[in-house]
Simulated scan of single mutants.
Amino acid sequence: MNNILLKYMENRFQSKILDPKQGIFCEGPVVTISRECGCTALNIANMMAEKLTAKTGNKWTCLTKEILERSAKELNLDPVKIEYVFNSKEKSTWDEILGALSSKYYQSDRKIKKTIAEVVKGFAAKGNCIIIGRGGVVLTQDIERSFHIKLQAPLDWRANQLQKIYNLSTNEMIKYANEIDKKRAILRNYFNKEPLPNTVFDVIYNSKKLMDEHIVDTSINLMELKGVLGKQIVMG
Results as ranks from 00 to 15, higher is better:
Met1Asn: 15
Ile4Trp: 11
Asn11Ala: 15
Asn11Trp: 10
Arg12Gln: 11
Gln14Ser: 15
Asp19Gln: 10
Asp19Met: 08
Ile24Cys: 07
Phe25Lys: 14
Gly28Trp: 00
Ser34Leu: 04
Glu36Ser: 13
Leu42Glu: 14
Asn46Gln: 10
Met48Trp: 00
Glu50Lys: 13
Leu52Asn: 02
Ala54Leu: 09
Thr56Val: 06
Gly57Glu: 03
Thr61Phe: 14
Leu63Pro: 04
Leu63Gly: 06
Thr64Cys: 13
Leu68Cys: 03
Ser71Lys: 04
Asn76Glu: 12
Asn76Tyr: 08
Leu77His: 08
Tyr84Trp: 03
Tyr84Gln: 05
Asn87Cys: 12
Glu96Tyr: 11
Ala100Cys: 06
Leu101Trp: 10
Ser102Val: 09
Ser103Phe: 03
Lys104Gly: 11
Tyr105Val: 14
Lys113His: 09
Lys114Trp: 09
Lys114Leu: 11
Gly122Ser: 04
Ala124Thr: 01
Ala125Trp: 09
Ile131Lys: 01
Gly133Glu: 01
Gly135Glu: 03
Leu139Glu: 02
Pro154Lys: 01
Asp156Thr: 11
Lys164Asn: 08
Ile165Phe: 13
Ser169Glu: 05
Asn171Val: 13
Lys175Glu: 11
Asn178Ala: 07
Glu179Tyr: 12
Asp181Gly: 05
Lys182Asp: 07
Ala185Gly: 04
Asn192Glu: 05
Asn192Asp: 04
Asn198Asp: 11
Val200Met: 06
Val200Trp: 04
Val200Cys: 04
Val200Asp: 04
Val203Trp: 03
Ile204Arg: 04
Lys209Ala: 12
Lys209Ser: 11
Lys209Thr: 10
Ile215Val: 06
Ile220Trp: 03
Met223Trp: 05
Met223Glu: 04
Gly227Asn: 07
Lys231Tyr: 09
Gln232Arg: 15
Ile233Thr: 09
Met235Arg: 15
